[in-house]
């Protein structure tokens, strides 16, 4: 795919993971996360195993771990939540004195933290190895609801167009002496947003007309003939298979 829609989470590397068909990676990531979620919170070794598994995928995909970890900072607000939740939650139901927290409370926080982190890391790995456009193709091949893929496809295309329009309107306002730093000028910005909404709505109607003119019937046509081979599926599903093995070993030990 071209450079047109490479997103900041995508790391273009020539690797076997990058070459896997998107639908395979989507299914693998989804199943992997399912395994993580199904793991009892007390199985610390199993969670360690998932991390090692992800790290090995990064190695194959030639993604530096630091690159992934920096981007996983997006999770930080949720970490705060995970730390706060047991404190706040416990406070309502049981007596919490000082720093003596109950073991179940800590485990619940750990549960959110570790599963959230592994989920974010898995998603980041998927995003780093799959351009946005291919993710959509993958969703379509997996028979995701047509409306969802259509809307996402249009969003992907028009978010830049609308941002461009917003930028031009802003420049035109500034050129006429508008300075939104002053509170009383915020009204102009608000009206600008309203105008932008109307413009986008009108554009939506014109796009719809243009689509109808080319025979659109309400569903996106299938544009690619390619299908994932059995070998690609088995390569991709090795990831959730190992995760499942870890999960089962955790259960059998616990």
């Amino acid at each position: 795919m071209g450079a047109g829609h490479s997103h900041p989470l995508f790391l273009d590397r020539p690797s076997p993971v990058h070459r896997l068909p998107p639908e395979v990676k989507l299914v693998a990531a989804f199943l992997g996360v399912l395994c993580v979620v199904a793991t009892p919170p007390g199985q610390f070794a199993v969670f360690g195993g998932y991390l090692v598994l992800l790290a090995s995928v990064w190695a194959v995909a030639r993604i530096p771990p630091g690159w992934i970890l920096r981007r996983s900072l997006i999770e930080a607000p949720f970490v705060v939540l995970a730390v706060l939740l047991p404190l706040v939650g416990e406070g309502e139901r049981t007596e919490v004195l000082g720093m003596s927290l109950s073991v179940p409370g800590l485990l619940a926080g750990w549960n959110i933290l570790v599963k959230g982190t592994l989920g974010v890391l898995t998603s980041l790995t998927l995003a780093a190895t799959t351009p946005l456009r291919e993710l959509l193709v993958g969703m379509q091949r997996l028979h995701a609801p047509a409306m969802v893929t259509t809307i996402t496809t249009l969003m992907l295309r028009y978010v830049d167009v609308i941002a461009g329009e917003a930028r031009r309107m802003r420049v035109a306002r500034i050129a006429r002496g508008h300075d939104p730093r002053f509170l009383w000028q915020a009204g102009a910005t608000a009206r600008g947003i309203g105008a932008l909404f109307l413009r986008s709505y009108e554009r939506g109607e014109r796009v719809h007309l243009a689509m109808l003119s080319r025979g659109w019937t309400g569903a996106m046509p299938v544009l690619t003939a390619g299908r994932a081979t059995a070998a690609q599926w088995s390569a991709g599903l090795a990831f959730p298979a190992v995760a499942l093995g870890l999960l089962l070993s955790g259960w059998s030990i616990g």
Binding site: L132, L156, R157, R203
Partner: peptide
């Protein structure tokens, strides 16, 4: 306005849209 007509993420997909329909 070509921005009304071209709505797919890539040129080739947009050109394929009509004939596929």
């Amino acid at each position: 306005d070509p921005d009304d007509q071209l709505f797919m993420p890539t040129v080739a997909e947009d050109v394929a849209f009509g004939p596929a329909n």
